[in-house]
Design a protein around this nucleic acid. Sequence first.
DNA 1: CTGTATCCGCCGAGATACTG
DNA 2: CAGTATCTCGGCGGATACAG
Lengths: 111, 111
Amino acid sequence: MDNKNEVNYSCPIEYTMNLIAGKWKLVILWHLSQEKVMRYGEIKKSLNNITHKMLSQQLKELEADGFIHRKAYSQIPPKVEYSLTSLGESFFPILESISKWGKHHFKENEK
Amino acid sequence: MDNKNEVNYSCPIEYTMNLIAGKWKLVILWHLSQEKVMRYGEIKKSLNNITHKMLSQQLKELEADGFIHRKAYSQIPPKVEYSLTSLGESFFPILESISKWGKHHFKENEK
DNA sequence: CTGTATCCGCCGAGATACTG
DNA sequence: CAGTATCTCGGCGGATACAG
């Protein structure tokens, strides 16, 4: 009897990638891990070419997955602060290894 | 004078993610790092729900980016072996940290 | 067995406008 | 300032067939 009706993750990478795949999530987590607390507008400025819609969408998913915490101040104009949860912080080793790789291999493409 | 006409990678993560984003690439690299040499059919079997088209596409991109090496035997039926290049092997720290994260956090979702 | 080509439905993602 | 809703469209990705 096989588990036909379940998603069968053949490996942990597949499992993880289904949580963080996409161009933006890890980048957002990375900035939050550096700055600790960031407002919506700050996050937007730190990313290239991300649209308003995409960013709110990604933030919502990250929050739903329990990776980030959202604190809204009830005021006009609104102010919202984002920060990593402890689960979000558990990505730090991944973020570091990717950042390290990027730094190393990006240099070779610079003029 | 700002570099307006260039893609401005605000951080190394963004740079790297544009190379390996997507659900499949890291999974493929991971299996190759474990098995060293795999035939097309072996890779396909090791992945869940990937279609023929998607796999050839991903393999082609990985080869174009210099992450994997492709060795074709001129025979009928054909035989093709894929393996990591040294650049591909440089992803190992990333793969390891993701695998480690997945193993740890996947357990908590098992029954 | 491995790879390419074509057709096509669906949804990711941009643009825009509106709300509190 | 932060977020939602609607409309729209290109292209991702599945199914299928064909080639070597």
